[in-house]
Computed example of a mutant assay.
Amino acid sequence: MFGDLSGMMDKLKEAQQKVEETKTRLNSVLVDETSADKKIKVTLTANREIKAISIDESLLADKEELEDYLIITLNKAIEKASKINENEMAIAAKAGMPNIPGMDMFK
């Protein structure tokens, strides 16, 4: 029984290590999003950290328009980054999960 428990603990540690490695790797995965008219471009990591924002000068004259563009474009970029992040983290967690009866929801 203790042999199984020890093996299970090793698998859980392995899963945790895979998740941490995936988090680190996702810092280098860049997600770009551009507004429909190409006036704003944002770049995020797959961990949803903003790396760059480029704004067309024509938007600088109208504060409200600029704010609207930023909100829409950032939300789209965050949504893309979140999907990548969730998929990669699920794969990493699933790969290291021990075979525990009744815990097949990760498969």
Rank of each mutant, 00 (worst) to 15 (best):
A93I: 04
L26R: 08
L60P: 01
S28G: 06
I100T: 04
E57D: 14
N27M: 03
N47Y: 04
N75L: 04
G96Y: 00
I71T: 05
L59A: 09
E20M: 13
K63Y: 05
A93T: 15
A46V: 06
E21K: 14
M8Y: 02
E20D: 09
N47V: 09
M105F: 15
E88P: 06
A81L: 11
K51P: 11
S28Q: 12
A77S: 03
Y69P: 07
D104F: 07
I50E: 13
M9V: 11
K76E: 09
N85G: 01
L44S: 05
M89H: 06
R25L: 08
N27E: 08
N27K: 12
S28Y: 07
K11W: 03
M8G: 00
E64Q: 02
Q16S: 11
T43M: 05
I78R: 01
K13W: 11
S82G: 10
T45C: 08
T22L: 01
M9F: 13
T34S: 07
V29H: 06
S58M: 03
F2M: 14
A93S: 14
A93H: 03
L12R: 01
E21P: 11
I72K: 05
V19L: 14
I84H: 00
V31F: 00
M9I: 12
I78P: 05
M8T: 10
A92C: 07
K38L: 09
N75Q: 06
L44T: 10
M89A: 04
F2Q: 07
A61K: 11
R25Q: 13
D104M: 09
D68N: 14
A77P: 04
I100Q: 04
K18Q: 14
A46G: 04
K107H: 13
N99Y: 08
P101G: 10
F106S: 10
K11Q: 13
D56F: 05
D37K: 14
D4M: 12
G3E: 05
L30N: 01
L12H: 03
K18S: 09
V42I: 12
L30T: 11
K83Q: 11
F2R: 02
M97W: 08
K83P: 00
A52M: 10
F106Q: 12
A95E: 15
L66R: 14
A90Y: 09
I50P: 09
K11C: 10
L66V: 12
A93V: 07
T45W: 03
N27Q: 07
E57M: 03
T73M: 05
D104V: 02
N87I: 03
P98T: 10
K83A: 10
G96H: 12
S6M: 15
E14K: 10
L70K: 06
K23W: 00
V42R: 09
M103C: 13
R48P: 01
D62A: 11
